[in-house]
């Protein structure tokens, strides 16, 4: 069986790539631990990271923990669409691809989705537990409102786990020492993306609402949402194009997208 683990290496302060202030998220580490737990003795666990040479230190840590092979895709600041294509070439033939559900820079989580599309694999994200003793693997997803979804995910699949799923095992001293000189494969990667993503804090768009009606108490109740039925979510059944339109419209209504 082949398992691939994707690590997003992030320079924390955003300055010069400096190994001291860089690393991967606990979720990424949990992804590796999950893969190591799933893997039998003769299974292959490949850890792949797209990043500058500084990412090698993190990949060597993965090798010390027990990964069988580490690959660095040589790139810096490439678009996630292109990164996913490069990762898919390495992950091809994997039964499961494991990703962290969030990266240190709290990215968009788009790489696992692109990756699943490229590999023709199923995708499950926001996993709070992975039962690796079952085949197919049984996972529990986090949903809104404290609810959970239990899924049996047949291979091939891309699974994104939260950091609480597992804690990366401590490498033995001998493995740590050996990993200092362990080889990390390097493959060419996509160029830096010209498209600059500007991430700003979420500010809801101003919306026009009807003038308040009723007495003070009613208005306070309305503002605080007291007395009404709580609305957690809404289920609709639509064909894919209509569903996509509905999602975009809703995001626009909430102010996440420009009007």
């Amino acid at each position: 069986m082949k398992l691939t683990v994707c690590w997003k290496w992030v320079t924390v302060d955003g300055g010069e790539p400096d190994d001291r202030w860089a690393g991967v998220s606990p979720a990424d580490e949990a992804a590796l631990e999950t893969a190591l737990t799933v893997a039998a003795a003769d299974d292959e666990v490949v850890v792949v990271s797209a990043g500058p040479p500084g990412a090698v230190a993190a990949l060597r840590r993965a090798l010390a923990a027990g990964a069988t092979r580490a690959v660095r895709i040589d790139t810096d600041g490439a678009a996630s669409r292109d990164v996913a294509t490069a990762v898919a070439a390495i992950a091809a033939g994997s039964d499961y691809v494991l990703c962290g559900d969030y990266s240190l820079d709290r990215g968009t989580g788009s790489v696992p989705a692109f990756l699943a599309a490229d590999l023709g694999a199923a995708q499950a994200l926001g996993l709070v537990s992975v039962d690796v003793t079952r085949r197919p693997v049984r996972v529990v997803r986090r949903l809104d409102g404290g609810r959970r979804e239990v899924l049996d995910v047949p291979a091939p699949a891309v699974l994104s786990v939260e950091g609480s799923v597992a804690r990366l095992r401590r490498a033995s001293l001998a493995a740590s020492l050996a990993s200092n000189s362990a080889p990390v494969d390097v493959v060419g990667g996509p160029p830096r993306s010209e498209q600059v993503a500007v991430v700003t804090a979420y500010r809801p768009r101003a919306r026009s609402l009807p003038a308040p009606a009723g007495g003070t108490l009613t208005r306070v109740r309305d503002i605080l949402d007291i007395g009404g039925e709580p609305v957690h979510s809404e289920s609709v059944t639509l064909d894919p194009p209509a569903a996509a339109r509905r999602i975009v419209d809703q995001l626009r209504d909430w102010g996440h997208l420009p009007a």
Partner: peptide, 8 residues
């Protein structure tokens, strides 16, 4: 040391 098999 505090690593598995950590005697040096």
């Amino acid at each position: 040391t505090d690593r598995p098999d950590g005697d040096l």
